[in-house]
């Protein structure tokens, strides 16, 4: 464990908690892409199946349980409890265009052709594009609530910190996992446009609005 990976995990946890609290406190999921939340929940479920097969550390297992339960709780809030506030008209990204290629690729490019490893690979590839429905929805509505931009900032930051963690681990441990690194690069690059808007607008107290 190194400081960058710990900071990444904390950033990820902060993002998940921010979103959950935003929906719970405002009793509204306006501006939130339910499709992205479903993708994130499936990312966690497919990646953390090893919860039942391998024990790495208390930290590792407890974080996995927290991520899975928070993401499923978020999906529940969006599609059931606060369904009336779900903006389905703008959450129209065709997720099959993500899931099918990602599914195919995880069968073609993986470390080991075993069910657990293919599911892990699927999860890594899916996570790199899971935010697209959310970014697409923001581009369609032309704006995002400030709390939602903070959620996206920490979510994008987490994988960026993981990239530094992988540089650290390559240099000090000779460890590197090309699948995770390439997917992590794609994932972080997808946020670049948002990061620019976040820094130039939200951090200056303006609302994030796109030229619709």
């Amino acid at each position: 464990m190194n400081i960058f990976r710990l900071a990444g995990d904390v950033s990820h946890l902060v993002a998940i908690i921010i979103l959950l609290l935003k929906i719970w406190k405002t009793r509204s999921c306006a501006g939130i892409s339910g499709k992205s939340q479903i993708l994130f929940a499936s990312v966690f479920v497919t990646r953390y199946l090893d919860l039942f097969t391998i024990f790495i550390s208390l930290y590792n297992s407890s974080m996995k349980i927290i991520y899975i339960s928070c993401s499923i709780a978020t999906v529940y809030l969006v599609y059931f409890k606060f369904k009336a506030t779900y903006d389905g008209n703008h959450d129209t990204f065709r997720v099959e265009f993500l899931v099918v290629p990602v599914g195919g690729l995880s069968f073609l490019v993986n470390h080991d052709f075993s069910p657990m490893e293919i599911l892990w690979t699927f999860s890594i590839y899916l996570e790199s594009v899971a935010i697209l429905p959310q970014l697409f929805m923001i581009s369609k509505t032309g704006e995002a609530e400030t709390i939602t931009t903070h959620y996206l900032f920490f979510l994008g930051l987490y994988r960026g910190l993981y990239l530094i963690n992988w540089i650290w681990r390559y240099y000090f441990e000779g460890f590197f996992d090309l699948i995770a690194i390439v997917a992590g690069l794609v994932q972080t690059v997808l946020y670049c446009d948002f990061f620019y808007l976040y820094v130039t607008k939200v951090l200056k107290g303006k609302k994030l609005s796109l030229p619709a």
Binding site: R5, D9, H12, R47, D50, I54, I56, N60, M63, K64, Y67, H111, D112, S114, M116, E117, W120, Y162, N165, E173, G174, F175, D177, A180
Partner: peptide, 10 residues
């Protein structure tokens, strides 16, 4: 040798 099949990262 790091066992890549035992992913120790979240």
């Amino acid at each position: 040798e790091y066992n890549v099949f035992q992913h120790d990262e979240l």
